[in-house]
Design a protein around this nucleic acid. Structure first.
Length: 588
RNA sequence: CGGGGCAUAGCUCAGUUUGGUAGAGCGCUCGGUUUGGGACCGAGAGGUCGUCAGUUCAAAUCUGGCUGCCCCGACCA
């Protein structure tokens, strides 16, 4: 490809309000252009990288028995109504009418379509197991797109769906994906870890998220160097420090004027935060048998801990949680800042939920439900009861690892993929059944597995760059070779280009009438792995200069062996990446 | 949905405080000189100042509404 003909410019500067490095560089190098928030065009360079990423995905999923197909982007709402997700999903779903005013949906995922296909195509256990996949555009009207390609609204995703007759068979496919996904990330130049994750609205029995660790990540992970434990903070457990055993002392009201935070309270009374009880008020939306009810949630954790909203939601089996308004708090007789479960007016619209560390922590300081006063020596069981006792506290830096007890630490990560054991939720809803060996009719067991293609490119760019520009690995770089022709060497450079092109090497040839500085800087910005320079210096010695993007070394390679030398370098770079593709032990 | 910021030429930004004929650098076009790390000279093109309304003799500038974009949080199948 001649750069004089290519569509898309490089930019000297990135827009000022773009902060994430991969976003800046992909814009500057002319890979992507925004059309609207979270909606991008992929220019020719990005398209080439994306095609390569998709081909890696194809190879890996084909390798575990996948069959590629394409499912529609536009769905009739009917199938989404059948699984109820039409009603459960809010504004993230793109909805519109066709010309006959039928409800239509823009695909955000394809479980419904797969389940619909299952009910049409799968009749017998003899047809199972199956693995189907596609690489398709999806629309999720995310409330907040951010960080360039990391979080977008329109995106392309590899998603595969496993179809099994029994759990053991599902487990086999699940584990096959577990490794295949690592292979995809490694081949794309991304170091990812798999963490156990919340199954969320997808339901199902097991899920892993693949996380690329980076400070710009939007998920918080809990990691342990001692034993390798890692989990999304949403579900991470930890060893709670036991409180010292004490005999319960009589409760005692103390004046605590203008002390409405745990920090202030602990300081004012001269007690550690662990000797206090923290009250958090939320409003939960519960869904049962098609009806929705709102309940005020009074959650209590020890003062040295924070509430984990995901754990809280799961413990309550709530559909949705939001912070309570002050009026809602006072409506049950609680006083914000001095709230207490003790002597609370009984009210069936309130659920009191207590972290499991609280009952074992005697003599805590709690509010007195009276502005300016707290109660000392509040004891669970004697002074109040909870509706639910559960683990609802968030793991924090330095807490004990739930497996080995060593201190854990927190890290941010971007979710680059996920795998789910879905179960039969969708096949049951849509009637995707088969006749098993014993003659009985059963729903097909599904798994679903996804990787965002653009996000993968962005994460690889995030991982593989320097101050000057991108350094994508050769496996996904748009071209392998960046050929730079210096001034007055046009004829010679053309000749080299023809020679490389004739050998079918992937070459981006900078034949523009630009100064050397401009060309070299653009080469660094686009960051192709191998740079060849046709200049007077090397030419006199009968060769061209070769430099790798990730090295400062420049060598002169002789013209008469040009293609072979470059090809050998390409092979070596591929081998380097391939060496990172290793088996990863499966961890639940 | 809550909080913050921004919107002037393709890009980066100045001009807004104190209303008075639209600016710079880079990029782009033409001519010439240069040619191993964002070169130089000369001549040009390019903006209804996001949008709608209001105040005013006069609005990029003051006031209000709306829209869009970025960041933080909530959310994230």
């Amino acid at each position: 490809m001649r750069m004089s003909k290519r569509f898309g410019l490089t930019l000297r500067e990135a827009p000022a309000d773009v902060e994430v490095k991969s976003h800046q560089l992909l814009l500057r190098a002319g890979f992507i252009r925004p059309l609207a928030a979270g909606i991008f065009s992929y220019l020719p360079l990005a398209k080439r990288s994306i095609t390569k990423i998709e081909n890696i995905m194809r190879e890996e999923i084909n390798g575990i028995g996948g069959q590629e197909m394409t499912m529609p982007v536009v769905h009739p709402a009917d199938i989404w109504k059948e699984t109820k997700r039409w009603y459960e999903i809010g504004t993230e779903m793109g909805r519109f009418y066709d010309k006959n005013e039928r409800d239509m949906v823009l695909a955000m995922t394809h479980e419904e379509v797969v389940a619909d296909l299952i009910r049409r195509e799968i009749q017998s256990y003899r047809q199972l197991p199956q693995l189907v996949y596609h690489i398709q555009t999806k629309w999720r009207d995310d409330p907040r797109p951010r960080a360039g390609l990391i979080r977008v609204r329109e995106f392309t995703m590899l998603d595969s769906y496993s179809l099994d007759a029994n759990e053991a068979s599902l487990d086999e496919q699940y584990r096959a994906h577990y490794q295949a996904y690592f292979n995809i990330f490694h081949r794309a130049g991304i170091k990812a870890i798999a963490v156990a994750s919340d199954v969320g609205m997808m339901g199902g029995s097991m899920a892993h998220e693949y996380m690329y660790l980076t400070p710009i990540g939007e998920d918080t992970l809990v990691l342990c160097d001692g034993c390798g434990y890692h989990a999304n903070r949403q579900i991470a457990t930890f060893k709670k420090k036991d409180a010292a055993a004490e005999t319960a002392l009589p409760a005692e009201k103390v004046a605590t004027p203008d002390v409405s935070t745990i920090e202030a309270l602990a300081e004012f009374l001269g007690v550690p935060k662990a000797k206090t009880a923290k009250a958090v008020f939320m409003v939960a939306t519960m869904r049962e048998a098609g009806t929705e009810t709102q309940k005020l949630i009074f959650a209590i954790v020890r003062g040295d801990m924070e509430v984990n909203e995901t754990k809280l939601t799961n413990a309550l089996k709530a559909h949705e949680l939001r912070p309570a308004h002050p009026e809602e708090i006072s409506s049950i007789g609680a006083v914000a800042g001095y709230a207490s479960p003790v002597g609370l007016r009984s009210n069936k619209n309130v659920i009191i939920i207590v972290d499991d560390a609280v009952p074992t922590s005697p003599n805590l300081v709690a509010g007195a439900n009276e502005a300016g006063y707290h109660l000392r020596n509040v004891n669970y069981g004697r002074d109040y009861q909870a509706d639910v006792v559960a683990d609802i506290a968030a793991a924090q830096e330095g807490d004990g690892c739930p497996r080995c007890g060593q201190p854990i630490y927190l890290s941010r990560g971007v979710e680059v993929g996920n795998i789910f054991k879905l179960g039969t939720k969708y096949t049951e809803a849509l009637g995707g059944t088969f006749v098993d060996e014993d003659g009985s009719s059963k729903p097909v067991i599904m798994g679903s597995y996804g990787i965002g293609v653009g996000r993968l490119l962005a994460c690889s760019a995030e991982e593989n760059h320097d101050d000057k520009g991108l350094m994508l690995p050769i496996t996904i770089a748009p071209y392998h070779v960046h050929l730079v022709g210096m001034g007055k060497m046009e004829k010679e450079a053309d000749q080299v280009y023809e020679q490389l092109a004739a050998a079918s090497l992937e070459v981006l040839y900078d034949d523009r009438d630009e100064s050397a500085g401009v060309k070299f800087n653009d080469a660094d910005l686009i960051g192709l792995p191998i740079r060849l320079t046709v200049g007077a210096r090397a030419w006199k010695e009968g060769g061209v200069e070769m430099k790798l993007r990730h090295s400062d070394e420049r060598i002169i390679i002789p013209l008469d062996n040009l293609v072979n030398t470059v090809q050998a370098q390409i092979d070596a770079l591929f081998a380097e990446v391939q060496a990172t593709v290793v088996p990863v032990p499966f961890e639940e």
